[in-house]
């Protein structure tokens, strides 16, 4: 089984090197690819120095598009499993074996790392927590399985899912409950796995201030569109 760790990074020169070495201690044989999403700092060089492959996007495309670049790279290079992890050190590499296990054994197509089943070692602001709970409830009721952490960027996916997302079905800004619902509706097997998420190592997070409000509205629209495409307007007899 060929495993690829996909790490999207935007201006993370301080974190990307240490994150890569930490991942290496838990996954010594896996390949790592850092998708440098139009960084204006030394992210790409630091990642290369740490021994990762680097895909340098000349423009900043956004988190989702960066991850999708990693999926496209994985498919083109014949990887069986992809693990997506953030470059800011929030995703504890010690959780990777647990995340990987159900995908390796073929029980599920996607394992979603949940900080609420596991542990979040940092305070989550209440508006963000409220948003997470709301979208978790929507995704859970739509899919009939328990989703606790829809915003998780800590996931393990097999090549079928990566292939599906590599083509055209991936949200380009922040894949979230909408992407999880899309996978569920399409018949992919999902399961949440407890993981540990820590406070980011250095710098500031991407979800701040007024963007959070915009994000909530955008997510409602994205979920509505997924429901329209996959449930409400789906032609009868269409196979997934």
């Amino acid at each position: 089984m060929r495993i690829l760790v996909i790490i999207p990074a935007h201006n993370e020169e301080a974190n990307v090197g240490p994150v890569i070495s930490q991942i290496r201690t838990f996954l010594p044989t896996a390949d790592l690819v850092v998708v440098d999403d139009g960084s204006r700092d030394d992210t790409a060089r630091r990642a290369k120095e740490a021994g990762a492959q680097v895909l340098s996007l000349p423009n900043n495309l956004g988190y989702g598009a960066a991850i999708q670049t990693g999926f496209r790279y994985a498919i083109r290079n014949g990887y069986d499993i992809g693990i997506q992890m953030d470059s800011d050190g929030q995703h504890d590499p010690a959780s990777v074996p647990a995340l990987l296990a159900p995908v390796l054994s073929g029980e599920v197509d996607v394992a979603l790392g949940s900080r609420f089943l596991g542990r979040a070692d940092y305070p989550i602001p209440w508006p963000k927590k409220l948003g997470m709970k709301l979208f978790a409830a929507i995704a859970s009721s739509a899919l009939g399985i328990r989703i606790t952490d829809p915003t998780t960027g800590f996931q393990a996916l097999n090549s079928r899912v990566m292939r599906y997302f590599a083509v055209d079905n991936y949200p380009s800004d922040y894949p979230d409950a909408d992407a999880i619902m899309l996978l569920g509706f399409r018949g992919f097997r999902l399961r949440e796995v407890p993981v540990v998420m820590k406070a980011r190592m250095a710098g500031t997070s991407m979800h701040t201030g007024a963007k959070t409000i915009l994000y909530v509205f955008k997510m409602f629209l994205s979920i509505l569109v997924v429901l329209l495409r996959e449930r409400i307007l789906k032609p009868r007899g269409a196979t997934s």
């Binding site: 340098s56 996007l57 000349p58 495309l61 670049t69 083109r76």
Partner: peptide, 14 residues
């Protein structure tokens, strides 16, 4: 289209 081109460019460059 820009997204796709940017992604392809980075993969080909690598």
């Amino acid at each position: 289209q820009n997204r796709r081109l940017t992604q392809e460019l980075s993969i080909l460059r690598n």
